[in-house]
């Protein structure tokens, strides 16, 4: 089988996260793709529509991917009813490396759908709660209605994470924080030199959050880059950011290594 051939998977369950976002539970129809590490992505194929890179939002025996409807392919994927067959290639890219951060304090900062690739890393750490120090989860959403995994937040808290949520625009029922995710950084409980932060969201959000975390003294801040991808395997050339092919050398990278490139407009 070539690297460009999708492996058939079946949607066994579909959970609507928000008005435009759904989480799909996926089971292989035959031989599965190789095991996925938190932070990796697949190329998801909707029959007759096309393919898009989508991060894996739950790893392990039950695999999940959370898709936001932003175009023809993601609309077809996000709208896939249980029973529908989709195709997967992958998994691709470097993961978060949460497996190697044992003994450290962890900070997860997710903006919007950016929480999706962070979720398997968080769940990995919560399953091994005693192996990690303090765990803080910072979440930013446009409105309360745009918040993904809302039903799980209390469970994360019960399992030993501090979870703080902020929205840009509150509604009448909202009792939480209002404002940018950077305003939550002072709520992080972590010993900065002994902490690892994982940040994912829109590029501008990642830059400001990473800068704020560094200003707090964190030195190990990792972000997950997003670039156009047509292959996932290093051939198509689309996902370059300077010296990196994001599919191969990312998507997770140390913020420090790309901070200057990200400051260059249209790099």
């Amino acid at each position: 089988m070539t690297a460009m051939t999708p492996v058939p998977y079946r949607v066994t369950e579909r959970r609507e996260e928000t008005r435009d976002t759904a989480t799909l539970v996926l089971r292989p129809c035959g031989a599965p793709i190789p095991p996925v590490r938190p932070g990796q992505f697949t190329m998801m194929y909707a029959f007759g529509v096309g393919e898009a890179p989508i991060s894996v939002s739950r790893t392990g025996t039950v695999m999940e991917q959370t898709v936001r409807d932003v175009g023809a392919v993601s609309r077809a994927l996000a709208g896939s009813a249980p029973g529908r067959m989709i195709g997967l290639r992958g998994p691709y890219g470097a993961g978060w490396g949460v497996e190697d951060a044992v003994g450290r304090d962890l900070v997860f900062a997710g903006g919007g759908i950016g929480l999706a690739p962070l979720r398997p890393a968080l769940l990995y750490a919560l399953r091994r709660r005693a192996s990690y120090g303090a765990i803080t989860v910072l979440i930013g959403a446009r409105t309360p209605a745009d918040l993904v995994y809302r039903a799980e937040l209390d469970e994360w808290r019960e399992r030993g994470a501090r979870v703080e949520v902020t929205v840009d625009h509150a509604d009448d029922g909202w009792r939480g924080h209002v404002g940018l995710i950077t305003s939550l950084v002072n709520l992080v409980c972590a010993d900065p030199p002994n902490a690892t932060a994982f940040v994912c969201g829109p590029e501008i959000m990642m830059r400001f959050t990473a800068e704020a975390l560094e200003a707090k003294g964190l030195t190990d801040v990792r972000i997950s880059l997003e670039r156009n991808m047509r292959c996932g395997v290093g051939w198509c050339g689309h996902c370059q950011l300077g010296l990196r092919l994001v599919c191969r050398d990312g998507p997770v990278v140390p913020y420090r290594d790309v901070a200057s490139e990200l400051r260059v407009k249209e790099r």
Partner: peptide
């Protein structure tokens, strides 16, 4: 550099993936 193009026929029963220079 290349891109891929996913195409279907009019019946929607048949799909193809093409790779082309980009």
């Amino acid at each position: 550099c290349t891109t891929v193009e996913d195409v279907t026929d009019l019946t929607g029963e048949h799909a193809e993936r093409w790779q082309r220079w980009d």
